[in-house]
Computed example of a mutant assay.
Amino acid sequence: MKTIGLIGGMSWESTATYYRYINEAVRDHLGGLASADVILNSLDFSNVVALQTADRWDEAGVLLGTAGAGLARAGADCVLICTNTMHLVADKVARMSGVPLIDIIDETAAALKADGRSRPLLLATRYTMEQGFYTRRMAAHGIDVLIPEADDRARVHGIIFNELCQGIIQDQSRSLLHEIIAASAERGADSVILGCTEIQLLIDAGELALPGYDSTAIHAAAAVRFALSGGKDEACRAAAERV
């Protein structure tokens, strides 16, 4: 089994979900007491948020790239950035890490394309919805991403940072997201991307008005496929084919 490197802590609420998803999948596919070989560097999210707020993305890229390089030195065979927003600096992190970076946007695009979806609504932080890096990457896969209206973007961003990243789950916020999703169908959306790794803490991708795609689960599954592929152990190879 290959070793998975996680750049986490952004927030730790969703990083904990990554750890659970990855280990549950490995146990399901290998059985018994099997668990994933994982190295985690959990960053102080307050430092990352300060760089985001100040629009200091180059510095944020160096911070995460340094974390990725450290994971590689520690033995990680791949790196995951355990957040959608910080994929804005994914290219720098990949270069500095020197090992394969499993990209959450590419993996989510692949899941959408496999199901014939081409016009998803994106629910995410305002950085992910407004900076353009996400929609451009999706467009390269032939996917036309919709984002909520400005007021709704602000509300979703607030739910993420003021509630979910702090472990707060509120029914009124869940209702608001469901309303935004329902309205998006009238704009031509054919699916929904839970494009912030914390949103799955609030709403279930399988219980939405449109087909939902949980980027956290998709990303974690891709990591497991990588970890179980290409090894000498026949059980790992067979398991990777089933993930």
Rank of each mutant, 00 (worst) to 15 (best):
L201K: 08
G231P: 11
A154S: 14
L194K: 00
A60S: 10
L80D: 00
A16G: 15
E241L: 07
H178W: 04
L43H: 08
G167V: 10
K232D: 13
L194C: 01
I39E: 00
L194P: 03
V93L: 06
E186M: 10
C165I: 07
E186D: 11
L176F: 13
F133D: 15
Q200F: 02
A76C: 03
N162R: 14
D106C: 10
L30Q: 08
L208E: 08
S215C: 06
I203D: 00
M138H: 05
R174Y: 02
G31K: 10
R153D: 14
M138W: 03
L177M: 06
V99Q: 04
Y21W: 12
A189C: 09
D77H: 14
E107L: 07
Y18I: 11
E207R: 10
D77K: 12
L228K: 14
R237N: 15
D204C: 01
T128H: 07
E241C: 03
A90R: 15
M86W: 01
Y127P: 10
D204A: 00
A223I: 07
Y18H: 15
G65A: 10
I218H: 04
L146K: 02
R155G: 08
A36H: 14
K232Y: 06
S229F: 06
N41E: 00
G8F: 01
A114M: 00
G5R: 01
E59F: 00
G61W: 01
T125P: 12
Y19I: 14
H87G: 15
A74H: 04
A150Y: 03
L123P: 04
L112C: 08
I102C: 07
T135I: 05
D103V: 13
S35H: 12
D37L: 07
V99A: 05
R117K: 13
A74S: 11
